[in-house]
Design a protein around this nucleic acid. Structure first.
Lengths: 193, 193
DNA sequence: GTTTAAATATAGCGTTCGCTATATTTAAAG
DNA sequence: CTTTAAATATAGCGAACGCTATATTTAAAC
């Protein structure tokens, strides 16, 4: 006994997911959310109560549709299969074509994707410089016979960079120095002879 | 031929570094910066021109004082030494006592530390849940003889989580699916037999 | 002492933000 | 048709933000 909805909730959540994924929570304004949804703020608030609440819905939606492998992994028969499922699950989830790269959760522990702030673009460039420095160093090492002939300098450089980001986040969320040392030691076991 | 400074530039940069490190660029307001520095906004702007510009100074300061190992690493004689220097350099840099945990750069590709936003705290809790699920799974595996008797379920869980964050950031900054696959494959080489 | 300009303080501008008081439309129920 | 309430739109509030126009203090130069 009322007016018919023009706001499709499911579609709106999906739209919001894309925005939050690409731009991060803070950089996605209500103006942009409502514009993309094709409604005015009161409709938005009638449907979602608050930006916070919508974000929670989005995270749930994302987790069940894009991170399902995390739960499936726990059911695998061997520990190694668990690890494989998680790692290759991430590979797929973070690089789905048509979807923003990376992880909505991580991106919203950290914004910046196509960030408006020039500073973050500069940080991103600095990351790339580091990567290229490392790659060059490992190319030289390979040329000098210090790395196997079949090793891939770019791959090794990216492996290290990736561990760096991972350790930084672990540290920030409470890992101790000993915890990080173990990660480093473990990672080095995969280093080419 | 002028008034003497009350604002100590070096000290102010250090103060700002701590704030940006802990809270992130966005969540650190000018009001907080000027309050901690003990000056009013015009003094701040006379000294630093803008918040952006101060942040740049802070990043430079941080990189040369806390990430010097990255440059030193490139000079090491072997590729393995390069890797070791970087990994253990991170361990130290990200867990210095008296300093905020984690990395100022990564934290400012991602805020949240003691973030005011409840949402981010929830995300952080969700991370912890994932970690504990994994640890439990690996404890079970160890009990079942599927993992070596000397293996550490918590360490393996954290290793995987860390790789997850790392891959997410790599993906977001442009790594391809093949790039991530290589990281995953490399990481699995360190998995206990 | 007067001048000069570097360094500070007072007060507030202009913008954007998340959000809402209020009013209006619209479909079903009677 | 009228009533009812769900769903929308208009218009704008209050707060926080980065930043600044303007005025004042203060040490060195002459």
């Amino acid at each position: 006994m009322s007016r018919t909805r023009v706001l499709d909730i499911d579609k709106a959540v999906h739209t919001a997911m894309n925005l939050f994924w690409r731009k991060g929570y803070d950089q996605t304004s209500l103006a942009e959310l409502t514009a993309e949804m094709g409604v005015t703020p009161p409709s938005f608030y009638f449907a979602f109560a608050s930006k916070d609440n919508l974000f929670r819905k989005v995270v749930d939606y994302y987790a069940s549709n894009y991170l399902a492998f995390m739960n499936e992994a726990l059911l695998k028969p061997t520990a190694r299969k668990v690890a494989e499922t998680i790692l290759f699950g991430c590979v797929e989830a973070y690089t789905r074509s048509g979807m923003p790269p990376g992880c909505l959760i991580v991106n919203n522990s950290m914004p910046c994707a196509d960030d408006a702030l020039e500073i973050r673009r500069e940080l991103s460039q600095a990351r790339d410089v580091r990567f290229k420095q490392l790659r060059k160093r490992f190319r030289d090492a390979k040329a000098a016979g210090d790395l196997p002939i079949d090793s891939d300098p770019a791959e090794l450089a990216r492996y290290l960079m990736s561990l760096r980001w991972g350790m930084a986040i672990e540290a920030q969320s409470g890992a101790t120095r000993r915890d990080l040392e173990k990660i480093a030691e473990r990672a080095l076991q995969a280093w080419p002879a």
